[in-house]
Design a protein around this nucleic acid. Sequence first.
DNA 1: TGATTTGCAGAATGATCATTCTGAAAATCA
DNA 2: TGATTTTCAGAATGATCATTCTGCAAATCA
Lengths: 195, 195
Amino acid sequence: MVAPQQALDAAVQVFWSEGYDGASITRLSRRMRLPKASLYQAYGDKEGLFLASIARYAETRLAPLAQTLGPHGSLAADLRAFFDAATRLATADPATPGCLISCVLADAAGTNPRLRVELAARFTALETRLHQRLVAGQDELTSPTDPATLAVLLASVARGLMLRARAGADHATLQAVGRAAVDLLCPPDKPTTAR
Amino acid sequence: MVAPQQALDAAVQVFWSEGYDGASITRLSRRMRLPKASLYQAYGDKEGLFLASIARYAETRLAPLAQTLGPHGSLAADLRAFFDAATRLATADPATPGCLISCVLADAAGTNPRLRVELAARFTALETRLHQRLVAGQDELTSPTDPATLAVLLASVARGLMLRARAGADHATLQAVGRAAVDLLCPPDKPTTAR
DNA sequence: TGATTTGCAGAATGATCATTCTGAAAATCA
DNA sequence: TGATTTTCAGAATGATCATTCTGCAAATCA
């Protein structure tokens, strides 16, 4: 018997690298070191196991990412930390590029209503967290656009980077893009010199 | 017998709304009004039909989108036209939210090497086009970041918007996000008033 | 130790799918 | 009109998959 967290970590790995449809119960069962019968006993069906994997992934991978937003330092510094962590997550393991939610769940949600609800909730959660941080550092924002829209914009950039990582982009490129996004929102030094 | 373009348009529709795995040959055949035998005769296999659908989609949906970049007017105006067109494409038909390439091909590429190559090529094509436009309007850019990185950033925003549309976001929200991205790159009026 | 329960690996089931095949209807041509 | 080719709808095939079932081996307990 393996600790349930370790089993779930294995499931996360399999779903993340092979996708929802691509991950067969037989391989999941083997990699989790959990017999099929116990697997169905514990999670009900494949969808239930996937949702549990999403929750585990959010806990272990996304929570630390949200942590980087602090507030710890300046808005620019915190956002830079956030994008650095996101791009590192997306490129850390060549077997699992991108993001389980932005890439795998987003796909599966296309044909499964329950997964679509889950996806919408996860997307909204990130946007809410970003919005909160932007409001906390509102005086450091030079953009006249309202923070709610900027939060969706930053979340969209993050998701676009995840897609790009899935399609094969190295960490350096993605990191540069993330930093460029932050620099646009919070001009690095002199507010504007060109003109 | 139906004109091949109309048949392909039907295939695009089916793949776009149901995904690569989700679209069964039986349904494709029916919606294309093309018997299975003729379908295999014409496209080889499901993967070939999908690639042909991608090409048709690029011709009919993405080419006009790239057209908006001109150069027609100012960089800001052209980029705004581009994002407006992209968000309209992503939300025009509730049956087919998002983008066939960013959402459907991006998923299928996860487990299929040939489709991965196709995805990388399509992604790069958009980035090249954006880069070209940014360079043409370089004097209108206030950001110190190099245009190549900004091009990947803009492409990432567009893809993030496509994902968000797939997860259910209305056109108004996405349009506002797209415009916010353009405003960050090309400040709308006074370069900076705050601070 | 012997009886009873639990845990497990893989076989059995039933469904779905891509791909190929078939036989009849429709169209073409002499 | 009669012979020949084309076209097609759906059946046949073989593979894969999620889910359930089965029979045995290990563990537990008296």
